[in-house]
Simulated scan of single mutants.
Amino acid sequence: MTVAFISGKCRRAAAITAVVAAGLLTLSACEKPTPLATVTVGTESVNSEAACYNDGSAIKESLVQGCLNDKPGKTVKVALDDKIRFGVDPEIAENGWTLFIGGQPAEQEPYKKTYRSIPASAFFTSQTGQAPSKTKISIVETNGKKLIGIWTFTLEKK
């Protein structure tokens, strides 16, 4: 009786082929990452993928308020005399983006550049005279009246 033996070289080649195939299968299941938005204060930078993003298409109206109000985002500590720098990927700037403070738009026209700088004191003023210790900021990518992506951050006063 003869038994067919597979050489060690063939077994290694078969094992390598199986590993490569498993790796390709894993990669094909990955989603494309969302564009990044970054908040920088001094030398500290915090970046984040979108809290809500629909691969470049408009976010459903029913989801927008939840994205703006329910997702706290990463926290950045700031002093009132700091400058806060906001940065976005070029594809966000191409459509335009605006800042929302506490879920409400802070400006009318979308900004079309990848970077802007705003004094921290602008985010900690209150009409009641008492400044909040935390402020939720959202960077919102727009395309006309449609919201495409929402990135959230929390500014915390030092």
Rank of each mutant, 00 (worst) to 15 (best):
N54Q: 14
T152K: 12
L147E: 10
L24K: 03
S121A: 13
T43F: 03
I92Y: 07
S133R: 10
L99Y: 06
A15Y: 03
K32S: 07
P33Y: 05
I16Y: 00
D89H: 06
I101C: 01
A15W: 01
T43R: 15
V41H: 12
S138A: 10
I118P: 08
C67S: 05
V46D: 02
I148M: 15
I137S: 01
Q108T: 12
A37N: 03
L36K: 10
E107G: 02
P72D: 15
P132I: 00
K136G: 00
S48A: 12
E49D: 13
S126L: 04
A51R: 06
G87S: 14
T2Q: 09
I118T: 13
C30E: 05
G23F: 13
T17I: 05
P33K: 09
S57F: 11
E61D: 15
K71T: 15
T75H: 07
I92P: 03
L24M: 15
G8D: 10
S45W: 05
S48K: 07
F5H: 13
E31F: 12
C30Q: 12
R116V: 02
E156Q: 15
C10I: 14
V64S: 05
A18Y: 03
V88C: 04
A51D: 11
I6S: 15
I137T: 01
L68W: 06
S57W: 11
G56D: 11
Q127A: 09
L24R: 04
T142I: 08
Q108V: 11
I92L: 08
Q108D: 11
G129C: 02
K112E: 08
D82N: 14
L36R: 10
K60D: 13
C30H: 01
L24F: 09
P90E: 08
E156K: 15
S45H: 06
K112Y: 12
D89Y: 00
L63K: 15
P72K: 15
M1R: 11
G96E: 06
P110S: 09
G66M: 06
S133I: 02
Q104F: 10
N95W: 04
S62G: 04
I92C: 03
T2A: 12
F153Q: 15
V88K: 04
S45N: 05
F124C: 08
R12N: 14
I139G: 00
T2L: 09
L147P: 02
T17L: 13
P90W: 03
P105F: 00
P33W: 04
S117L: 09
L27N: 14
K146G: 00
K134D: 05
V19Q: 00
S48P: 02
L24T: 08
P132E: 04
D89G: 05
G66A: 09
A29L: 10
K83Y: 03
M1H: 11
C30M: 13
